[in-house]
Design a protein around this nucleic acid. Structure first.
Length: 598
RNA sequence: GGGGGUGUAGCUCAGUUGGUUAGAGCGAUCGCCUGUCACGCGAUAGGUCGAGGGUUCGAGUCCCUUCACUCCCGCCA
């Protein structure tokens, strides 16, 4: 007989009746009846009920055993009587009668019980992560993550992608997030950076002629955490292809995502491919964000012109419009029976989000005619009501909210309001995964604070204008061959057709103030690589963590990460970060400067 | 860097306008119990009310400072 087990804890069935088996696992739960006790034995696979009577020599030991001690039992498989069958267990038709017992590892009293699905404070869960991970939900989430990754790997291999590793110790990159730095012992005073993404490496892999690359790549960014964003590290399905246009990337990844989400997304319906494509500008107008949640049926409209016309005499808005504000309208269908407080609280909410507020108008049908009602209705002409109704696609009993702000704020508020209204009115189709591509991103944006032009997204993207046209075009009007994949309001991926032409590379960077020598200094490797015959190429990098979060239906990234850092980027189990010894610092030529308080 | 929330027994939480010795459930320990599967019943132990300071005759409760965790803004090409 095997030293530890003949079967796992989810394996035994009626067919094993009367056989002698050996099981090993954790003491999940003990039910002590005095002269008879039941022990639920748990392992990765499941639970098997074991039973022991007082006559057995091990009874006294098991009576005192601490939960989550690891034991091994040898015993006989018994058929349960009909009334004692447990339908919730795969092994519920049998139980194992104790013969021999071996205690493999005793547990102390647990700081947090494994049994049950109670909520515990995060710091305790992280400090005792190995216990937290024993719990069913966490265990399942982590297994889901593992399955998702192996599914992706298998698919990518089938599609002809080659999996490569790229360096972890690399060079700091000038654009983007804050780098993690690693001091170099052999090069005193110099530092490596951990890669924020293998962006330049994957492009060089294309230059090297490998045609299709992917990697489940760790990415390191020293930025503050959020619920859906781990401080420190996260993983991306990093991929790149040669001789492609963006449609080629789409047609490779769409079936992948469709299958992935169909397979692991439970009952939820996945949007058919090809996925909807929405231009950045349309998305900002209709959804108020570049990551729209398409499960939400509401669409925003621009109504600046009509508010500026004779049809509406609302002077506060007109004044704002003259100062450069715009008006966006967010419909709220079927709200005629809502109390006044519904409208007022939305107005109050908008103010807490930094807006002036939200005006509203209700539409009522009286005598075959649509009329407006509500505080600002009196400013609308009949024709004004008709136009608004048409633009916003309103019907009898609907309301519409108006945000009059500078463009940036109006977009933001209307987007948030669209989502809030849909949530309040229960309009979000929860049982779906709605994918879309956001395309035609502007290459640059104007940085208001520094009063200069910045990259809006990825500086390595190919502009959608030719080299010859580049200087003749308003830089803020130049679009990039860039695309984001969005699902249910979450940005899963950025991607782009890359800029593979050195002269275009210099040109693109010149608009944000980089001289040729700056580019040579900071992207020397890249420029060099593009100078000896580079294939046109492009790719993307979907975030693994966010994919798994969507599939596991959790709001927090730590629910699907084995050993996450807390919000202060600390590992409470391993005690990282920690102080370095003087010896270590000396070898690295590093001196710690104490910060002066005040 | 900024804003919000939380902090009371090992865990989850209650604790009234400031007023007697701070409570419950789970867990732990001990005892009883042969068919449970969140087993049941009884008893016992367990608290610097996050920390420090202040107001008050009196503070878990009010004020100030501070710490921890968390959520959000900034940041995340």
């Amino acid at each position: 007989m095997h030293k530890y087990r003949t079967h796992n804890c989810s394996e035994l069935r009626l067919s094993h009746k009367s056989t002698t088996v050996k099981l090993s696992g954790w003491v999940h739960r003990v039910r002590d009846h005095g002269n008879l006790l039941f022990i639920d034995l748990r392992d990765h696979y499941g639970i098997t009920q074991c039973v022991i009577e007082k006559a057995n020599k091990n009874f006294k030991i098991l009576e005192k055993i601490k939960p989550d001690s690891v034991i091994s039992i040898t015993g006989k498989v018994l058929k349960r009587t009909p009334e004692t069958i447990n339908k919730d267990l795969l092994t519920g038709e049998i139980e194992v009668e104790f013969k021999e017992l071996e205690i493999l590892s005793e547990a102390q009293e647990l700081p947090m019980p494994v049994f049950g699905e109670q909520d515990y404070p995060e710091d305790i869960r992280l400090k005792y992560r190995f216990l937290d991970l024993r719990r069913q939900t966490m265990h399942e989430n982590i297994i889901l993550r593992s399955k998702v990754i192996s599914f992706i790997r298998k698919k990518m291999n089938e599609l002809g992608f080659n999996e490569f590793q790229t360096p972890i110790l690399t060079a700091s990159s000038p654009e983007g997030a804050r780098d993690f730095l690693v001091p170099s012992r052999l090069n005193p005073g110099k530092f490596y950076a951990l890669p924020q993404a293998p962006q330049q490496f994957k492009q060089m892999i294309m230059v090297a002629g490998f045609d299709k690359y992917f990697q489940i790549a760790p990415c390191f960014r020293d930025e503050d955490g959020r619920a859906d964003r781990s401080p420190g590290e996260h993983y991306q399905l990093d991929m790149e292809m040669s001789f492609v246009e963006k449609e080629d990337i789409f047609s490779v990844t769409e079936p992948l995502f469709y299958e992935l989400f169909s397979k692991f997304g439970g009952e939820k319906k996945v949007s058919d491919y090809p996925f909807k494509k929405i231009s950045f500008n349309d998305s900002m107008l209709q959804y108020g964000t570049d990551k729209p949640d398409l499960r939400n049926p509401l669409k925003i409209s621009d109504v600046t012109d009509i508010f500026n016309s004779v049809e509406i005499k609302l002077n506060i808005f007109k004044k704002q419009i003259n100062k450069g504000a715009i008006v966006r309208a967010i419909p709220a269908p079927n709200t005629i029976k809502k109390p006044r407080s519904f409208y007022d609280s939305l107005n109050e909410w908008a103010k807490t989000e930094g807006a002036n507020g939200l005006a509203y108008l209700s539409i009522i049908k009286t005598k075959d005619k649509l009329t407006g009602s509500g505080p600002i209705a009196k400013y609308f002409s009949d024709n004004g009501i008709n136009i608004i109704t048409k633009i916003c696609n309103l019907k009898d009993g609907d309301a519409v909210f108006f945000s009059c702000e500078k463009k940036q704020i109006a977009e933001k508020i209307s987007g948030l309001a669209r989502q809030k209204i849909a949530k309040d009115l229960d309009l979000i189709q929860e049982n779906q995964f709605q994918f879309c591509w956001i395309i035609d991103y502007p290459l640059y944006q104007f940085n208001e604070e520094e009063k200069k032009i910045d990259f809006s997204h990825n500086p390595f993207s190919m502009p959608k204008v030719s080299y010859e046209e580049f200087d003749k075009t308003d830089p803020l009007k130049i679009l990039a061959e860039q695309y984001d994949l969005v699902c249910n309001g979450i940005e899963l991926s950025s991607g782009a057709i890359r800029n593979h032409l050195p002269k275009m590379f210099y040109k693109v960077f010149s608009k944000v103030g980089y001289l040729k020598k700056d580019v040579d200094k900071k992207f020397g490797g890249m420029i060099k690589a593009l100078s000896y015959g580079a294939p046109p190429h492009g790719g993307m990098a979907p975030g693994i963590d966010r994919i798994v979060m969507l599939l596991a239906n959790v709001e927090n990234i730590r629910e699907i990460t084995l050993f996450p850092l807390n919000q202060n980027a600390q590992d409470l189990l391993m005690n990282a970060p920690s102080k370095a010894t003087d010896q270590q610092l000396k070898e690295l030529n590093i001196k710690i400067v104490k910060k002066n308080k005040n």
